[in-house]
Amino acid sequence: MISSFPWESVGIEHDSAWNETLARYGRSFWLASRFLPRETRHHVTTIYAFFRHLDDIADTGRLEPQLAETMLRSWQAWLVSHFATPVPNPSLARAVARVYTRYGLPAQYACDLIDGLLDDLFPRRIRSHSELYHYCYRVAGAVGLTLAPLLGVHCRPGLSAANALGIAMQLTNIARDVGEDLRRGRLYLPIEDLARFGVDPSEVERLANEFRPPDHRLQAVIRLQVARARQFYRQAIRGYPCLPPRVRLAIIVSAEVYGAILHVIERNQYDTIRLRAVAGYDDKAAALLRAWKIHRRLSRGGNCPCPSFGIA
């Protein structure tokens, strides 16, 4: 999920407050957002704030599951009603409704996100890689698909890439947070992957509770998730030409900086049971350089090369 961020303590109308708090709690997002035009950055941050708020309801553990479910369903009803029903945070709702209305953003993706978050309220296990991808679409791909029209992406390849980038980032989260998720009663490593390498789910839960490192079998399972994440990052790259030049660098930076977490996981010998992989200064500097090179290479191509900007 999106990294923890206390939006309730931030005035939703104050861009400077967002920037200060983003720099502290959402560092990768903040860094990438610096490369967006100011107005676009403000609107993207508003939508990020909305999704961060939803994610915090489900993921911080501050709320009883039944209360969290009620709050999430109230937001879902608000989306379905085209912003007509009451919600727990009216100031956030007003700001979000303005952005949705201005850009004609589809509400269905946020409803799908909420469905994914509702599933996270209680202990869960993912059975197969297809179930994993569906979960990643809900909690991350749907975010990319919501933001795409705001960023000026409307063609089918561009939307497919937006979904792929969200899935790549969520798979990165899953590979990074194995121990942390298990200690919260969540096992996102697919059961079929564990079985393929001869790992019983109870073994993984025991390792997490005892803060013990993974053996070679579990390392192989985590390595597989890293490989899958990279596959989706590569799919996202295909959509870079569909991004308007004024926002392209920001999205490439976002992908490269977040993808750098995978390098840290590898350096840590796939021990995400005890260790949290965090990209350091050198990792981010290298990611920025890669992003700039990709951006420069694409800058010769101009605007979206698709025959039509329409989805059909």
Rank of each mutant, 00 (worst) to 15 (best):
D56G: 15
T40M: 14
G61A: 06
W75Q: 03
H43P: 07
T45F: 10
R52N: 03
A58W: 03
F83Y: 07
V96P: 00
A77S: 15
S81Q: 14
W75N: 04
E39P: 09
L67T: 15
T45K: 03
V87R: 13
A95R: 09
S91Q: 08
L63M: 10
T85I: 00
L36M: 06
E69G: 13
I57D: 08
R62D: 11
D56Y: 12
S81T: 08
T60F: 14
T45Q: 10
V44T: 04
L54Y: 03
A58F: 00
F35S: 01
A95K: 08
R62N: 11
M71S: 05
T60R: 08
A58Q: 01
F50P: 07
P86M: 02
V87E: 02
P37T: 00
W75D: 07
H82W: 11
E39Q: 13
L79Y: 07
Q66A: 15
V96W: 00
H43D: 13
R62I: 08
Q66C: 14
H82V: 12
L63T: 05
T85L: 14
E64Q: 14
Q76V: 10
I47T: 13
I47H: 12
R38V: 06
L54C: 05
A49N: 12
W75V: 04
H43A: 09
D56M: 10
H42E: 07
V87W: 03
P37R: 01
A84R: 12
E69I: 10
V87T: 09
R62Y: 15
F51A: 13
P90G: 08
F51L: 12
L63W: 06
R94H: 14
P90D: 04
T60W: 14
H53P: 15
L63F: 12
A49K: 03
A93G: 04
W75A: 01
T85C: 14
R38E: 08
L92I: 15
L63K: 01
F83S: 10
H53F: 13
T45R: 04
I57Q: 05
L79A: 06
P37A: 02
E39M: 14
A84H: 06
V80Y: 09
T70F: 11
Q76G: 04
I57M: 11
N89E: 06
L79E: 09
T46P: 02
F83L: 09
F35E: 00
T45N: 15
V87S: 04
P88Y: 11
V96G: 00
A49F: 06
L67H: 11
H53D: 05
F35M: 01
A93K: 09
V80F: 06
P65F: 05
D55Y: 02
T60H: 09
H53V: 12
H43Q: 11
E69L: 04
R73Q: 14
F35R: 00
E39D: 09
F35T: 00
R52S: 04
H82P: 05
W75E: 04
R41Q: 10
N89F: 07
F50L: 10
R38S: 09
R52C: 01
R73A: 07
A49R: 05
E69Q: 07
F83V: 14
E69T: 10
D59A: 11
D59L: 12
M71Y: 08
H53E: 15
F83M: 12
R38A: 15
A95T: 07
M71P: 12
F50G: 02
R62C: 08
T70I: 10
A93H: 09
L67N: 10
F50S: 12
